[in-house]
Design a protein around this nucleic acid. Structure first.
Lengths: 158, 158
DNA sequence: TAGATTAGTCAATGTGGTTGACCAAACCGT
DNA sequence: ACGGTTTGGTCAACCACATTGACTAATCTA
């Protein structure tokens, strides 16, 4: 059986962007698995990044991730069960439950940052550093200004 | 409250690729909704594209989409309910059930192609045609050769 | 202090994915 | 032609991630 027909012209661009993203994410998690973080799912890296070293709350996390506070809360539950996050009471506001990285979670986040840097360097070795930079510049240009609000939908689940 | 800290250097590249993809998909579906296809979810366009004008079977569809035949079957169920796809018996093999686009589905697929072409043109107007082409070339270079197997995980659900 | 807002949780539901089990039809080698 | 294997489809159970609505408790504010 031959490979399926290549997509029509207009379909190419989104597919390539998706493929580029997927490639990075897949490579990241393959390497993370090798480094002792096999349980980390694609989505989780974004969550750890959004929690950050300073910690946050479930509601704020939901806002950063662009999902409801309930969805954020459930994701935190799972990452607590995996020992990536922990909850603590906020002494200044009894309603709030602070969400913080555990040492294990901080390790995962730091390794992710290192691996992403390496992957970007690999792209720079292949394409040339200036083309990677141009690619980033171009994407920043055509993308809404608030792109860094880590708006990651369900789809990283793959 | 200030916007959250921008991501660390290594995190930028995947986030920008994701943002670019999301921007295209969101714009596509906003326009599709205006043109009478409000029920089409982000994933569905890829499925229609994978079904193609000639039709296919659930198993083959699963292969093209990189998911199990069961998952493909359930997705077909949903698109049948929305009148985008229909099933028919294969007279030459009683096991197979052909999956075909309905007229409504074909309309959605064609409109998607047109809109994607327009969006790509919009990028070319902003960045210049040669930079869009360079972007595509670069992504093709750093991406596995089989990228056009429409390997779309759960995440288009957003 | 009363009323509005905010944080978190629970419950029900939807979508898209997985594995395993199973049946019927088709294929293939003796 | 027959019997074993492969293939296509479906069912069931389950998981991950999202939604909305309802609710409590704590805090803020007029």
């Amino acid at each position: 059986m031959p490979t399926p027909d290549p997509p029509r012209p207009g379909f190419l661009l989104p597919l390539l962007l998706l493929a580029g993203f997927r490639t990075l994410i897949d490579d990241l998690h393959a390497e993370l698995a090798r480094q002792g973080h096999a349980e980390l799912r694609p989505l989780h890296g974004f969550v750890l990044q959004a929690v950050g070293a300073d910690g946050t709350t479930a509601s704020e996390l939901g806002h950063r991730l662009g999902v409801s506070k309930q969805a954020a809360g459930k994701t935190v539950d799972r990452l607590v069960a995996l020992d990536y996050l922990e909850r603590a009471d906020d002494p200044r506001d009894a309603r709030r439950k602070l969400v913080r990285l555990t040492p294990h979670g901080l390790d995962g986040l730091r390794r992710s940052a290192v691996i992403f840097d390496e992957l970007r360097q690999r792209w720079a070795d292949t394409l040339g550093a200036e083309r990677v930079a141009a690619l980033e510049d171009d994407l920043r240009t055509v993308t809404p200004a608030n792109w860094f609000r880590l708006d990651v939908p369900g789809w990283l689940t793959g």
